[in-house]
């Protein structure tokens, strides 16, 4: 499209057992929609994983899969309003209308990130097992219409995963740079124990810097 949507969305580091040891949200394009509704609501909402999601009915930027984020400006916590009422019950009462509801894509919880990391760990292995050619690695790149996932697995089995805009280039170099930063700032930190979550300021700082440098390379490769 005409919109300049490029960049690096997030970084995951997965240990050789499939455990998430590091995660960074770099850039998340937010699209939230607020709309005032009268009774009855013309969307079907259903509870899913402690959230209230749009199950049917798309209008004015609200899409299936979007979660209820706030009611009358007050953030909801999961399926309950700020003052502890069940959101579905609240919206079933005509006396509460008109009501203003804010919708948006649900953010991943830390537990979901752990789950997704171990899910990718198995997908990576199955991708290699089902290979029609011998000697295949696991999934190195996975492409969708909204993002590309790039994965680099080290010889020791650690996976560096970068989610980026499909048009973003220079990711292979970035993955190797992240490996270098990991070796320099996580592994050489005397307080870091292997396979455990990485909590190290220098690693953070250098990683963020590397992401910014990679983004400057532009959507079609280094402009040199």
């Amino acid at each position: 499209g005409p919109r300049l949507a490029m960049g690096i969305f997030s970084v995951f580091v997965v240990n050789k057992a499939g455990g998430l040891v590091y995660q960074l949200e770099h850039y998340a394009p937010r699209a939230e929609t607020e709309k005032t509704f009268s009774f009855p609501l013309e969307l079907v909402l259903r509870p899913h994983d402690e959230r209230l999601l749009v199950a049917f009915g798309q209008r004015d930027g609200i899409r299936v899969g979007h979660a209820v984020l706030a009611i009358n400006g007050a953030e909801v916590s999961g399926r309950f309003t700020a003052d502890g009422k069940d959101v579905l019950e609240y919206l079933a009462n005509p006396a509460h209308y008109p009501v203003s509801i804010r919708f948006g894509r649900p953010r991943l919880s830390s537990n979901e990130k752990l789950m997704l990391a171990s899910m990718f760990h198995s997908l990576f292995a199955i991708g290699s097992q089902l290979s029609p050619e011998p000697g295949s690695s696991g999934i190195e790149m996975l492409e969708t219409d909204t993002f590309k996932l790039h994965c680099f697995q080290t010889l020791t089995g650690i996976k560096f995963v970068v989610l980026a805009d499909p048009r973003q280039s220079g990711i292979d170099a970035l993955l190797r740079k992240i490996y270098e930063i990991y070796s320099d700032f996580a592994l050489k930190n005397p307080f870091y124990s292997l396979e455990m979550p990485i909590r190290c300021e220098l690693f953070d700082q250098n990683l963020k810097l590397a992401l910014e440098v990679a983004e400057k390379a532009g959507p079609f490769g280094p402009g040199l």
Binding site: R105, G127, S128, I139, M141, L142, T144, T146, F147, L163
Partner: peptide, 20 residues
């Protein structure tokens, strides 16, 4: 991918590749 995608998807999953 439906959880990982930062924005709403249309076509969804298109392809993946390994070294081979």
């Amino acid at each position: 991918i439906s959880k990982m995608s930062p924005v709403d998807m249309k076509d969804g999953f298109l392809s993946f590749q390994t070294s081979k």
